[in-house]
Design a protein around this nucleic acid. Structure first.
Lengths: 365, 365
DNA sequence: CTGAAAGCGCTTACAG
DNA sequence: CTGAAAGCGCTTACAG
């Protein structure tokens, strides 16, 4: 645990003059940690061989690998991430860009990513974009300076400059939450539009006919769900009966329980014929259910309510909330797995991974 | 190459002009980014001066600073974090260790930390300990290898080994959520015990006498709140009337709406004399309010309910939830500020920063 | 399959 | 106040 022996620079000093106890002379800058050099010395090989043996790169004689690993273990050697990053111009960081930390959806995603990446030796750098492409571009610019080993970004809605930054960096990148059929683009998610359509269809199948769609934030994925909603109405021949617009409440404010309650009241007031409301996110729907309790509106008898994502608490509401369960944990896990393959230089058999969704019918519809 | 390589070991060669200017025939490994060198060349100074001018370290002639900054700007120079970390054995990362990502409390904290640190050029590395000191120790071990510039950890409950790791690393460390009066320990938080006592006292002041305390997770801060609860009862002379134990429901499971509902039912069943329940976290209390609706128990007439933290949604419940508002965003912001002072080598005037709390009386009590 | 050399882009430590 | 030298601990690129 003491300082490692000074490097054996056989200087030109055959005759060692007095032992000038070099107390302050040449203080080592080293951190005291075992280095590649130390392991090499102990194993009786060159540092490069140690490097290769430990990384499992190229062919190294099995016997040497064994010896190196033993030495590394004995010395408690752990590679220095900074040195490695400098030499290879690639760090052990994975930057993850998500819109928001206050939406449980992304927290679940993040948690899953982290759980997969950390044990593999990757550190997660989290960037919050607040749904703003310009903020995302700035984050990207900043994180790319750190030469991340990989990148996970949310969706496909970004500035052209941001796209160029990603491409030019050559850093492997996986897109999450949506999938898109484009060559050389990796994505893990599900079809937001199909999910929106399926939920709407489920309400239609119950015999509901005046189905409103209420969304907040209005990010790209919200609008895709809206598309799905419209498709379902159209397919049911209802789009002609009532102009869609009359049944769509689109609010750009951030999603919240309070906003959901406000939207609920507004819809009942402005469109009393509505017999179901499909909220674009569970927090809105939960807020609506609470508002219904407050107002004495009976759900689902008077109006049915459905949400999206199956967030925590939705199964506790009164009534329990019908919703679309989205596989964000699986998305995080699979995205991490795909990214690791890419970072290793491997090839991915299924570059567009669709993990689907599930309609969860509960008490509110 | 053409030059004869010098004798393998510098045996005895005091005289050696040695002008091995290796021509740059080789392919450059450089990334193409502007380097310190480039800026130095452009500004007509040495690289060290550029380094110092840009970091604002030591005294550099104002005129040179100006010139260097211009050159850096013109070349779009941005320091390489890896090189900087390797040379200085200190990265631009700040590791933040929190128990959970699924508790909104910590998400708020994290968000505030990130907002303060990122603009100052620090990257946040997030570690989730799941309330497990051993997991925390492992994370610490791993993150410390990256030579973080700073550390933010939650509370004071950690393994002795983890404490030693922090101390030995010499990395500035700020503790959040609690404060403790110990020399050389930096903390930003509030008194969890005082908050527990104040909430209990507020219920007592309303004339409630059979106040139950219900907690999940049972992490150190939960238990401190329990202490405060006991102090309040004792001060009111109620501890003697009823043995405390009969009014305490302590469940080690993770906090959740569902668990809150279950605890609520259990308490009403097992202790019908209870006229108020103080839940250790808002999610439990919210679950209790939903259970009350389900069961037809009138809150607060039949039993009052109080929570802790004032999480999102508590003001939307039916009835709205009485709770303790905790300053986690301010804690994150101030912890980041304190840490930045420490990382700069500055001294902190108030090493134990108590940010207080606030009782929020609403409909449930 | 293995290694000597060079270099990644900074900062430290020492001198002047 | 400024700089030449050395070095941080790895990997790349080239040879053999």
């Amino acid at each position: 645990m003491s300082n490692k022996p000074p490097p054996d620079d056989s200087r030109v000093e055959p005759i060692q003059p007095l032992q000038r106890k070099t107390a302050a002379v040449k203080r080592p800058r080293s951190s005291g940690r075992a280095t590649l050099q130390d392991v090499a010395l102990a194993a009786g090989v060159s540092p490069i061989t140690v490097s290769r043996a430990l990384r499992g790169e190229r062919a190294v004689a099995a016997e040497l690998v064994e010896r190196v690993q033993q030495a590394a273990l004995a010395l408690g050697y752990v590679p220095d991430p900074a040195a490695r990053a400098l030499a290879s111009s690639r760090s052990s960081h994975v930057a993850v860009l998500i819109p928001l930390l206050s939406n449980a959806l992304f927290v679940d995603l993040l948690d899953a990513v982290q759980r997969s990446l950390f044990p593999a030796g990757f550190q997660t750098l989290i960037g919050v974009t607040h749904y703003d492409p310009n903020e995302e571009e700035a984050l990207l610019r900043s994180y790319l300076l750190h030469r991340p080993a990989g990148l996970i970004v949310t969706g496909f809605d970004r500035t052209p400059a941001a796209k160029r930054l990603i491409d030019a960096s050559g850093v492997p990148c996986v897109h999450v939450m949506e999938t898109v059929a484009e060559p050389c683009v990796y994505s893990v998610g599900f079809s937001q539009a199909d999910a929106g359509q399926a939920m709407t269809q489920a309400l239609l199948d119950q015999g509901l006919r005046h189905i409103a769609f209420a969304a907040a934030q209005l990010d790209p994925r919200s609008l895709q769900r809206l598309d799905g909603y419209r498709r379902a109405l159209q397919a049911a021949g209802l789009a002609a009966v009532l102009p869609n617009k009359a049944l769509e409440w689109l609010n750009p404010l951030p999603s919240s329980l309070a906003l959901g309650g406000a939207l609920f009241e507004q819809i009942l007031r402005e469109a009393p014929q509505v017999d179901a409301i499909f909220f674009n996110n569970d927090d809105l729907a939960q807020g609506a259910l609470l508002a219904a309790l407050r107002l004495g509106v009976r759900v689902p008898e008077q109006v049915a309510v459905a949400g999206f994502n199956d967030l925590t608490g939705s199964d506790q509401m009164l009534p329990t909330l019908t919703t679309v369960r989205t596989p964000r944990s699986a998305i995080g896990r699979e995205a991490a797995r795909m990214l690791m393959t890419l970072m290793r230089g491997g090839s991915v058999t299924e570059p567009q991974l669709d993990l689907g969704f599930e309609i969860v019918r509960r008490g509110s519809s």
